[in-house]
Amino acid sequence: MDVGLIFKIAAVGILITILSQVLKHSGREEHAFLISLAGLILVLTWIVPYIYDLFVMIQNLFEL
């Protein structure tokens, strides 16, 4: 959980945006969609562990 997570997501976002623009202009619409889906999954795999840790911490702290 460091600030690098934000910059990683931003980097993936910029990369995906450029790739999808390139793919869109070269006529491959579905590839552009697949690329953005891959970006989504990649970002989710980074974020989900932190969400899990956070909610486990909350459950322990608040005795839910």
């Binding site: 959980m1 600030v3 997570l5 934000i6 997501i9 931003a10 976002g13 970002v43 974020i47 932190y50 969400i51 956070l54």
Partner: peptide, 10 residues
């Protein structure tokens, strides 16, 4: 939205 989510999570 993902970046906003990551920041608020942090």
């Amino acid at each position: 939205l993902y970046i906003g989510f990551a920041v608020s999570l942090m």
